[in-house]
Design a protein around this nucleic acid. Structure first.
Lengths: 138, 138
DNA sequence: GTAATCCTTGACGTCGGCGTCAAGGCAAGC
DNA sequence: GCTTGCCTTGACGCCGACGTCAAGGATTAC
């Protein structure tokens, strides 16, 4: 199949596939007229990449999975290098999640404090008595 | 004070402060020789911006806080527009955190499955019997 | 006086993952 | 033959928050 069909079946664009090729993740055979030609294994490869990208992996991190598939394994994550990426990613995710939870707590606390002080400033208490300066909330 | 001192006291760079000015977040008076001059209120303003950026707010999102400070409020989050940004951010954080938790669960499941299949392939079971193809773990 | 250190504006570089255009070749239907 | 729709390579654009360099003026230290 040619690049347009592959892109459509993979749910992506030809530009993206050429970009993958430029990064060395995808290798295309060439027809006599110079057109790129692909087979089903290329489709599986792209789907592997897309799945990982949806997880938030960047392109370089998908390389071990691609290499693994190309080495003949039925699954891209069957190789030690791929599993190592999984493990590293789990650590990054855990760190990121707990950092975000910390930020969430801090922002929540700031908001609570600000709301409290705002209600204290207004003589009538926390009634729906708008401050001056109101304008818009977007 | 001049831009170099302000940058140092705020823990940032002169380039960053000029960038803030170009975005309309920071306004500088000018000395006779053309040098920018600042006072303590500018320092507080920058610290407000930096705090929010550490929370993951992008520059545009800090604008209401800056405007609030400049309007004379002692705290940048005392204004309704600032609190609205807080609330929106809380929603984004919650959405992001739960999305990441979903990804974390999926990646964890993929890793578990891959490890299981890898140990099943090796005749000796999950003993420390390295696969061929090993190479490096980085 | 002159060297070192500040300041000024302007402009290009960075990073990732492509989008989007340009100019042209190839294939298929009418 | 002509149009339409694939395909090719090359190259610039985008986004955010600055980093970094260039060329020159101002101030301060000695």
């Amino acid at each position: 199949m040619r690049i347009g069909e592959l892109a459509e079946r993979a749910g992506t664009t030809t530009r993206t596939l050429r970009y993958y090729e430029s990064r060395g993740l995808l290798h295309a055979r060439r027809a006599e007229n110079g057109y790129r030609t692909y087979d089903e294994s290329d489709l599986r490869l792209i789907r592997q990449i897309r799945t990982l990208q949806d997880f938030g992996f960047d392109l370089e991190e998908t390389r071990p999975f691609v290499d693994c598939l190309r080495a003949g394994h039925p699954a891209g994550d069957a190789c030690p290098a791929s599993m190592a990426v999984y493990r590293r990613k789990l650590g990054e995710l855990d760190a990121l999640i707990s950092q975000l939870q910390g930020v969430r707590a801090e922002v929540g606390a700031q908001l609570a404090r600000a709301e409290l002080e705002a209600s204290a400033e207004v003589p009538g208490g926390p009634e729906p008595r708008c401050e001056l300066n109101w304008e818009d909330e977007r």
